[in-house]
Design a protein around this nucleic acid. Sequence first.
DNA 1: CTCTTGACCATGT
DNA 2: AACATGGCCAAGA
Length: 105
Amino acid sequence: MQKNKNNFFEQVYEVVRKIPEGKVMTYGQIAEKVGTKDARKVGWALHANPDGSDVPCHRVVNKNGRLAPGYAFGGPDEQKNRLITEGIPFSTKDKVDLKRCSYEI
DNA sequence: CTCTTGACCATGT
DNA sequence: AACATGGCCAAGA
């Protein structure tokens, strides 16, 4: 067993990994779930996260339903495309319909 | 240890 | 709606 020096990462990854298909989670929500109030840490954790692994970062959006333009893995188009492919409803062209896909804890 | 940056959030103008 | 500021917290240089 390894020492969870990055327990925060582990928790974030775990939560994000558990997001079902067709649902998205906000940074603030994940932040609370991992026991913090700072959504920034969540965003930082995902950025420091080994993308392409088991963490579907594209299912993680901010509170405004906004994605991460320019800082995502391949661009907002890619993320949007993925979300649509996963079956995520969109409220607008660049925003996710949190009313329909908010995954509650 | 100090300073800067950051995939956020809330409020004010 | 867009821009600016403050807050919180952790990592990188």
